[in-house]
């Protein structure tokens, strides 16, 4: 590279740096919401997002035009691959153990949600990722398959298994709500 191109390169680099800063400021919280729904843990969620953003930063000149989709894919795939490593626990630790509600309509509703939440956090990472994409991000089966790098049929079967597990794991209250279509 000749000397005359130096300032141009610095300017382009600074522009990309600014773009990255703006992207994180705009979308960081949304990404953190997804990560927290995937992990159920503050520290793990922050680590997951920072890792995905670091990978995005390392390839920013190439992926900046479609950065959010890239970071989302990293989030979901990193979470799933982390889970596959030997020695990982399948259960999720919860910072504060919620009290069980007593009798009453409102309390039953709260109890039901807590049971469902616990069951959700106990799902395998892949199945939870499918549910988070489908029900938090409102992604279609095809979009979910695209992000997770699998076939739409796999997404449908994972979602079906996850809902079946939730019905069983969360107990009778959830069973009374009925099954998935």
């Amino acid at each position: 590279m000749d000397a005359a191109s130096g300032p141009v390169e610095v300017t382009v680099k600074q522009s990309l740096e600014d773009e990255f800063t703006v992207f994180v400021a705009d979308r960081g919280q949304a990404l953190l919401r997804i990560a927290y729904a995937l992990t159920g843990d503050r520290g793990a969620a922050e680590d997951l997002v920072q890792g995905a953003l670091a990978k995005a930063y390392a390839r920013w000149p190439r992926i900046h035009s479609d950065a959010e989709a890239y970071v989302r894919r990293i989030l979901y795939n990193d979470r799933a691959s982390l889970w596959r490593r030997p020695g990982r626990r399948r259960e999720v630790s919860v910072a504060e153990v919620p009290d069980r509600a007593g009798p009453g309509a409102h309390d039953e509703d709260v109890t039901e949600r807590l049971a469902l939440r616990e069951a959700l956090l106990a799902l395998p990472a892949r199945q939870r990722a499918v549910l988070v994409m489908r029900y938090l991000e409102d992604r279609s089966v095809e979009e979910t398959a695209e992000a997770l790098g699998c076939r739409p049929g796999t997404v449908a079967s994972q979602a079906s298994r996850a809902l079946a597990k939730l019905r069983v794991s969360a107990g009778d209250r959830i069973t009374e709500l009925g099954g998935a279509r």
Binding site: F20, T21, V24, A25, G28, Q29, L32, R33, I34, A35, Y36, A37, G40, R42, A45, E46, V49, Q50, L53, A54, A56, Y57, E112, R113, L116, R117, L120, L131, V132, Y135, L136, L163, L166, R167, I174, L177, G178, G179, A180, R181
Partner: peptide, 28 residues
């Protein structure tokens, strides 16, 4: 289904508990 509605509500409640983003860009 009602189960899917309940899952949707639960997932969104969980996401709402996400911590505020601090220094994500610097660490990244």
């Amino acid at each position: 289904s009602e189960l899917e509605n309940a899952v949707r509500t639960t997932v969104r409640d969980l996401a709402d508990e996400a911590p505020p983003a601090h220094d994500l860009a610097a660490v990244a």
